[in-house]
Simulated scan of single mutants.
Amino acid sequence: MSSPDIELVNLSKNYGSTPIVRAIDLTVPQGEFVSILGPSGCGKTTTLNMIAGFTIPSSGHIKVRGLDQTGVPPEKRGVGLVFQNYALFPHMTVRQNVGFGLKMQGKSQHDIDEQVKKALHSVHLDGFEDRYPKELSGGQQQRTALARAIAPRPSLLLLDEPLSNLDLKLREAMRIELKDVQRELGITFVYVTHDQEEAMAMSDRIVVMHQGVIAQVGTPSELYSTPRSTFVADFIGKSNIFAVTPTKVEGGIHRVKISGTGLELLAASPEPDPAGIAFCSIRPEAARWIEGQSPADRPLNILPVSITKIVNLGAYLEVWCRHQSDTVLKSLISAARGAELRPGVDIELTIEPAAIKLLSS
């Protein structure tokens, strides 16, 4: 692993007696794209503002490239910033906006011109130098703000929900562009968002925050496939989440009963202690529709269900199903395969034991 660009050590922030960020530890290696993801009020923007220097921590330390920056003012940290509202100067051209920070640093006009040119080329805005912000689209304004942030060649870039004001199609296009720019420049990005699809699409790693603490850190695939809590399972993608009671364990296979029902499922889990199991999470795509198999071929965890609702998601159908135990599960079925399915139709679902994630909280 490369040397860390950012180290947060036991970092906390309180407003009066109210804790906002609670003793978090985080290391971000050089050149990584890390997203801080969570719902409103979880502490993600406060964490970003402490890294930037706009918010003073109540306790703990912030290190950037190995140097303690906890008490260093924002302008001395060598950190680039991109905000939700872009904060472009309306009376300045694109060239002047991008070069503003360099001018404040006392750079020569030659150096300003060179670095502005490189920054605009990096975000594909060649030829836009003399336009004013009002003459730019939302995506072009966002790229201008990004160019302004990278022109001084910061060691790291902090981005606070910079795509939230864009429409869906443009937001999806800008995700790709942002990741491409980050990869080409090799700059460490710390990106704050409440949009899990955005974080999944761009990040090398995601820091999931909940109520001021870090709930889990991992790659997008790790968080999706092996959530450590019901909060992460529910916040990253979609899940069927049930309270369960363990009834038996043999050879790593747990038999668990969904609370309040008679439905029992077999789950393969590394959790050795049944007493630590309180919930299970099942991704909708893991609840598979089975048809026409002979008894010898039938898998484990077969659930006869009745379809109660179908939500068309385009390529897939989200099929809501009710088991005779009154357990309701959502299954994801391809639209082409499920074209004839309707509410009221009886089908069978199967769930592989390894796809049932057993959780303690």
Rank of each mutant, 00 (worst) to 15 (best):
E271F: 03
P299D: 08
H323R: 09
Y316C: 03
A267R: 08
E250Y: 07
V256C: 00
V328L: 08
I277N: 12
C280L: 15
P304L: 05
A267T: 09
V319Q: 05
V249R: 15
V328A: 10
P295Y: 06
S325A: 11
P270G: 12
V311Q: 06
R298G: 02
A267Q: 10
I282H: 09
P299F: 03
R283A: 10
S325P: 05
P272C: 05
G314D: 11
T247F: 01
A286M: 12
R298W: 04
S331G: 06
K257A: 11
L300T: 13
F279S: 01
V256T: 04
Y316I: 01
T308S: 15
L265T: 11
G314S: 06
R283N: 10
K248G: 04
P274A: 10
Q324W: 00
S294K: 15
E250Q: 08
D297F: 10
G252V: 13
I282Q: 12
C321H: 06
L317W: 02
A268T: 13
A275C: 06
V319W: 02
L303Q: 07
E318D: 14
L300Q: 14
Q293G: 00
A315T: 12
S269D: 14
S294G: 09
H254I: 02
V305F: 04
S325R: 06
S259C: 10
V328C: 03
S306F: 02
E318Y: 04
I258K: 12
T247P: 07
E291T: 13
G314Y: 08
I282T: 06
A278R: 15
Q293C: 01
Q293A: 01
W320R: 02
I253M: 13
H323T: 05
K257G: 06
E291F: 10
R255F: 03
S259L: 12
D326H: 11
Q293P: 02
Q324D: 13
Y316W: 10
K309F: 07
P299K: 01
E291Y: 11
S281R: 09
T261D: 01
N301L: 07
V249N: 14
L265C: 00
E264Y: 00
G251E: 14
V311R: 07
A287D: 10
G251A: 14
A287T: 12
I282D: 04
E250K: 05
A286W: 08
A296Y: 03
G276V: 00
I258A: 14
C321A: 08
D326T: 12
P304F: 02
L317H: 15
T308M: 06
P304T: 05
S259A: 12
K309P: 00
I307R: 07
E291A: 11
R322Q: 15
L266W: 07
S325D: 02
